[in-house]
């Protein structure tokens, strides 16, 4: 009996000690980590739009963040969108729009929220608390980013996550205004290095680039080896050192445009997970943005994108 109590105490103490060490480290590193992650996401977004150190983004490029919520009230559900808009003072602000589940416009409110504050989930919650009915509850669903040059939408950026082989894979997909796929970036994953971990390789990710919306809807994985010329083209995409001439590259692009995704060797599950994840993200988004645009037109809501 005495023994068991001593063991219990020793184990509890060890756990507390370990917790203390981890907790202290977390407190000291959390801010820097968050900052790095934010930078990483920013870089990924610009990278997907084709900008980088060599090709800086146009100064008039605007990235508008749209946050989607599910509002629950008395057993009924509706959708809530937090949209960047010009506020009454003329400066940038946010507007809250509610749609029913069929996508019909219900209601709108102006929000007291600056674009900087809108980046933080806590500040968004605070702003929402002011306008929601008591008893209604808004759960954050996801964020999408709309890239605009002037009044023209140039691209959509969709951060999202989907189940991989082991845990969730965090990724970001870029679409142009016609929902053609511009790029795919894997942000965080825990697939096995050397096997499923290869989903971060250019020759895998670039297979998605240029697929039309019609093709994405039917996209599957095939277990055939990557043809040599296609592989060379995929590896050099965006680097410009493939040794392929303009016309050869265009020819390859044309030939494999409607090709399904070649699975990674030894990692069919990870490959299929990414393919299905991207497919689902794009399909859902295309539906949502069309519904949202229609509702905004019906409700005569002016937004920045």
């Amino acid at each position: 009996m005495k023994e068991i109590i001593r063991i219990t105490i020793a184990l509890t103490l060890s756990c507390l000690l370990a917790g203390l060490v981890i907790g202290t480290t977390f407190i000291f590193t959390a801010k820097a980590k968050q900052h790095n992650e934010h930078l990483n996401v920013q870089q990924t977004m610009l990278g997907l739009l084709g900008f980088g150190p060599q090709r800086p983004a146009a100064p008039e490029l605007q990235l508008h963040q749209v946050h989607r919520y599910i509002v629950k009230e008395n057993e009924t559900m509706r959708m809530g969108y937090m949209l960047p808009a010009r506020c009454s003072g003329g400066g940038p602000g946010y507007v809250w729009v509610e749609l029913d589940l069929k996508g019909e416009f219900l209601d709108r409110h102006d929000l007291v929220l600056t674009p900087e504050a809108a980046l933080s989930a806590d500040d968004r919650k605070k702003a929402l608390a002011g306008i929601l009915d008591p008893g209604a509850e808004a759960d954050f669903a996801d964020t999408m980013i709309i890239a605009c040059l002037g009044d023209r939408r140039t691209a959509y950026l969709l951060p999202g996550e989907f189940p991989g082989f082991k845990t969730f894979i965090k990724a970001m997909v870029a679409l142009d205004a016609d929902f053609q796929l511009l790029g795919l970036e894997v942000i965080e994953h825990e697939e096995d290095p050397g096997l499923g971990g290869e989903i971060t390789q250019e020759y895998f990710k670039n297979q998605f680039v240029g697929k039309s919306f019609e093709k994405i809807k039917r996209l599957t994985v095939i277990k055939e080896p990557l043809p040599a010329d296609y592989e060379r083209y995929l590896k050099s995409m965006g680097l410009g050192n493939s040794g392929l001439s303009e016309s050869e590259a265009a020819d390859i692009r044309q030939r494999y445009k409607d090709q399904d995704i070649h699975a990674l060797t030894g990692a069919t599950i990870s490959s299929a997970a990414v393919t299905n994840g991207v497919k689902a993200m794009v399909k859902k988004f295309a539906y949502r943005i069309q519904v949202l645009d229609q509702a905004l037109a019906d409700g005569d809501v002016k937004v920045l994108f």
Binding site: V21, I22, T25, F26, F28, T29, A30, K31, A32, K33, N36, L39, N40
Partner: peptide
């Protein structure tokens, strides 16, 4: 600890 420190200071 190593995971947290790497993520914060050596991205």
């Amino acid at each position: 600890v190593i995971d947290l420190v790497l993520a914060a200071y050596l991205p």
